[in-house]
Amino acid sequence: MPHNIVGLDHTLVGVEDLEKARETYEKLGFTLTPRGSHIGWGTANYCIMFPDDYIELLGIVDPTKETNGLDKKLEERGPGMLGIALSTDAPEATVTSLDEAGLGPARLHDLKRKLELAEGDVIPEFKLIRYPYQGMPLGGLFICHHLTPELIRTPEWQLHANGAQYVQSVVVLVDDPDAYLAHYTALCGAINVTRTDQTMTVRIGKLNLIFVTESDMDLLFPGLFISADMPEFPHILSMSIAVSDRAKTKTYLEGAGIQVQDVPNGAVRVQPSDASGVVLEFVQAQK
Rank of each mutant, 00 (worst) to 15 (best):
M1F: 07
I5Q: 09
T11P: 00
E16K: 15
D17A: 13
E19F: 07
K20C: 00
Y25L: 01
G29C: 09
T33D: 08
P34F: 09
R35K: 14
R35T: 05
W41Y: 10
W41V: 00
C47H: 02
C47L: 11
M49L: 10
P51K: 14
D53E: 08
Y54E: 08
L58R: 09
G59E: 03
G59L: 04
D62P: 11
T64C: 00
K65N: 13
K65S: 12
E66D: 15
T67W: 06
T67S: 14
N68E: 13
G69F: 04
D71I: 12
K72T: 15
L74P: 03
R77I: 09
M81R: 05
L82R: 14
G83F: 08
L86Y: 05
L86P: 03
S87L: 15
D89E: 10
D89R: 08
P91T: 11
A93Y: 07
V95R: 11
E100W: 04
A101F: 07
G104A: 03
L108M: 11
L111N: 03
E119M: 09
G120H: 09
V122H: 04
I123G: 02
P124Y: 04
F126I: 14
R130A: 08
P132E: 08
Y133P: 03
Q134G: 11
G140F: 06
L141W: 01
L141G: 02
C144I: 01
H146A: 09
L147K: 14
T148N: 03
P149Q: 07
T154D: 15
T154I: 15
H160R: 07
N162I: 07
G163A: 05
A164P: 00
Y166M: 00
V167S: 08
Q168K: 15
Q168W: 06
V170T: 10
V171R: 10
L173E: 01
D176P: 05
Y184E: 04
T185G: 08
C188K: 05
V193L: 07
R195S: 02
T196R: 02
Q198D: 00
V202S: 01
L207K: 09
L209N: 09
I210S: 04
I210C: 02
V212R: 01
D216Q: 06
L220T: 13
F221V: 03
P222N: 06
P222C: 06
P222G: 04
G223D: 01
L224Y: 12
A228S: 08
E232D: 14
P234A: 11
P234Y: 12
P234W: 12
S238C: 05
I241P: 06
D245I: 06
R246F: 07
K248M: 11
K248R: 13
K250M: 15
E254M: 03
E254K: 01
D262C: 02
D262R: 00
N265H: 03
N265T: 10
G266C: 00
V270H: 04
E281W: 01
F282P: 04
Q284G: 11
Q286V: 14
K287T: 14
